[in-house]
Design a protein around this nucleic acid. Structure first.
Length: 252
DNA sequence: ATGGCTTCATAGTGAAGA
């Protein structure tokens, strides 16, 4: 089963790119973040006509997550049950015997901001909830925009980024904590090119200069097998791209 | 260098992203 994640930075703007990517790559499951679309306006038919089911949790302007699936979707969970949140950042469902958790983890702005505190609180709730969720669903995949670059090799300029949001020690500690729950970074299970990133700044020709970060991840539990994982840079080269590009993994 | 781009929003000295 091919599973994937993509922060599309507005589904309305990127719908055609997503449809094309689905047709060309045929994933079984695609998790989307930053749909920026209210549920009433979600383009459900467009995906259904392509043979996909969709579940989504969105809002106007910001955030918003969705799971697009070729297979039956059951037991949908909207938002973290242990964290009151007006921001639509999590949706989970069971698909083909696997618990699929789609997250848009808060950005955090800067380490001295209230948004950073919110990010760490959100992450603590996610970690606590996942520990419990893994008891109920040993076969689990956590896909999304984590807004965390777990290691220096995931950062184009680790010296410039040192200590900043997205790479700070408390954020990386949570990423390690998730790994201690038995979750493995699918991408790092395989030999990968150096300087591999999933996001590049729109400004200053970030993509062309490969000034990026690897902040979109697929973590899989111990009972999930994985045969391949990669970052597909092709959509980032398109006209009017998202600043993130899809990450996928082949699992069973 | 708090800029630089992009989106959604409103008509802001904009907000937020990463």
């Amino acid at each position: 089963m091919r599973i994937a994640t993509w922060n599309v930075n507005s589904l309305k703007v990127r719908l055609e790119q997503v449809q094309k990517w689905l047709a060309e790559n045929q994933p079984d499951i695609l998790c989307l973040q930053e749909t920026k679309t209210e549920d009433a306006n979600f383009p459900m038919l467009e995906f259904q006509q392509a043979g996909y089911q969709v579940v989504f949790s969105g809002q106007k302007t910001y955030n918003g997550v969705a799971i697009i699936s070729k297979h039956a979707v059951t037991d949908v969970q909207y938002g973290l049950p242990n964290f009151e949140d007006l921001q639509k950042r999590m949706i989970a469902a069971t698909i083909d015997g696997m618990r699929i958790v789609c997250v848009y983890i808060p950005n955090g702005e800067s380490i001295d901001s209230d948004k950073y505190k919110y990010k760490l609180a959100w992450l603590a709730a996610l970690q606590a909830w996942l520990k419990d969720e893994l008891q109920h669903y040993p076969k689990l995949a956590l896909l999304g925009d984590y807004n965390i670059a777990p290691e220096d090799r995931d950062v184009h300029d680790p010296v410039a980024w040192a200590g900043k949001v997205l790479v700070s020690e408390p954020e990386r500690a949570v990423f390690s904590g998730l790994q201690q729950l038995g979750l493995r970074d699918a991408y790092r299970l395989f030999e990968q090119p150096e300087k591999s990133y999933s996001w590049w700044d729109y400004r200053m020709m970030g993509f062309r200069r490969n000034h990026g970060l690897r902040i979109d991840h697929i973590l899989i539990s111990e009972t999930v097998s994985c045969t391949a994982s990669s970052i597909d840079k092709a959509p980032r080269k398109l006209e009017r791209p998202s600043d993130h590009t899809p990450v996928w993994a082949e699992v069973f």
